[in-house]
Design a protein around this nucleic acid. Structure first.
Length: 306
DNA sequence: AAATCGACCAACCGCGAGAGC
DNA sequence: AGCTCTCGCGGTTGGTCGATT
């Protein structure tokens, strides 16, 4: 048996909303609320629209706290960092940006931010290619083994050219040029960030002694090569969660129970990030979850995050 | 001035998840 | 347990508008 349509598509109006329809919907929702039933709402409100269409119009356009356009640099960084960490989970990303909707963030990414990120990555690729061809070993080291910092411009903040789970499996992989690199890299501008950045990226075997460096790693310089080689993917820090998300507690689920996990984030950031990543990538890298020292997130944590 | 192109954004579509019966 | 219904999400489409030729 097929799925019943949410409305009679032949009889309901489609296409752009008129100011009158907007006023009608706004007035109804403000006076009566949605009633928890968008399907029935258009009839009650006297609108000849599909319930889904009404819901979308309200959420994306008519809600009183909506912001349109004018994305700030900080918002850019939050978007690309989260995109890099969790992929195209637009509703989650939008929930970290007050006044922004998932549709708006998605459009902004697809039309502007992605291009910006791709341009930056191409520039970084050029830089690393240059390092490699000049004997830098391809990992930002010079002949003497000393770490090489990219020139101090906002365009070269990528500490790695390795794909992350999120970006590799997302639309970025199909972007022009087919580049599946880490897009969070563009967000780690040393010139614009004062606080340390870190993002646990599926490496279950981060040595305890590196927990602090994971938390404090903020620049384009990778950890010492000997240590890197023992970490999954060789590059655990190719992207990051923003400090404003970790530090400001926006990611912290409510309640004392979770406070026990994320509260002491600054004390044991590595394990906390492990747990956070586990929520976003529950099916990736099974070996990670089997790691002896891995601590499964408490039940309900993922739900509260997503 | 007209045609074409590309960027942008609102809206649609189909699917999965979860609740209720 | 299985079915139906609704919600919410992410991908995609199509219209509009400004820039370019």
């Amino acid at each position: 048996m097929g799925r019943a349509p949410c409305c009679d598509k032949a009889s309901v109006k489609k296409g752009p909303w008129s100011p009158e329809e907007d006023a009608q919907l706004r007035s109804y929702v403000q006076n009566h609320g949605t009633g928890g039933n968008w399907i029935a709402l258009p009839h009650k409100a006297g609108l000849n629209r599909c319930g889904k269409s009404c819901r979308l119009r309200w959420l994306n356009y008519l809600r009183p706290d909506i912001k349109h356009g004018g994305y700030t640099e900080q918002e850019d960084r939050i978007i690309c960092s989260l995109y890099n960490s969790i992929g195209s989970r637009w509703s989650i990303i939008a929930s970290k940006l007050p006044g922004r909707t998932d549709n708006d963030v998605k459009n902004y990414w697809n039309t502007k931010l992605k291009k910006k990120a791709i341009a930056m990555l191409q520039q970084q690729q050029e830089y690393y290619r240059h390092c490699h061809s000049s004997g830098a070993g391809g990992r930002g080291r010079d002949r003497s083994g000393a770490l090489v910092r990219p020139p101090p411009t906002p365009q070269n903040q990528c500490p790695s050219m390795q794909p992350s789970p999120a970006s590799a499996s997302s639309a970025v992989a199909t972007a022009s040029g087919g580049d599946a690199c880490s897009f969070g890299a563009m967000c780690s501008s040393p010139s614009t960030l004062q606080a340390p950045l870190a993002r646990y990226d599926g490496a279950a075997t981060v040595p305890q002694q590196h927990a602090s460096s994971l938390a404090e790693f903020s620049g384009p310089v990778p950890p010492p090569q000997a240590d890197v080689s023992s970490w999954a993917g060789a590059m655990a820090f190719d992207d990051m969660f923003l400090p404003e998300l970790l530090g400001a507690g926006e990611f912290l689920p409510p309640g004392d129970h979770f406070g026990g996990v994320f509260g002491p984030l600054l004390q044991d950031r590595a394990s906390s990030l492990q747990e956070l990543s586990a929520c976003y990538f529950p099916d990736s890298q099974p070996e990670m979850w089997a790691a002896a020292d891995y601590v499964k997130p408490p039940a309900g944590l993922c739900h509260s995050l997503t």
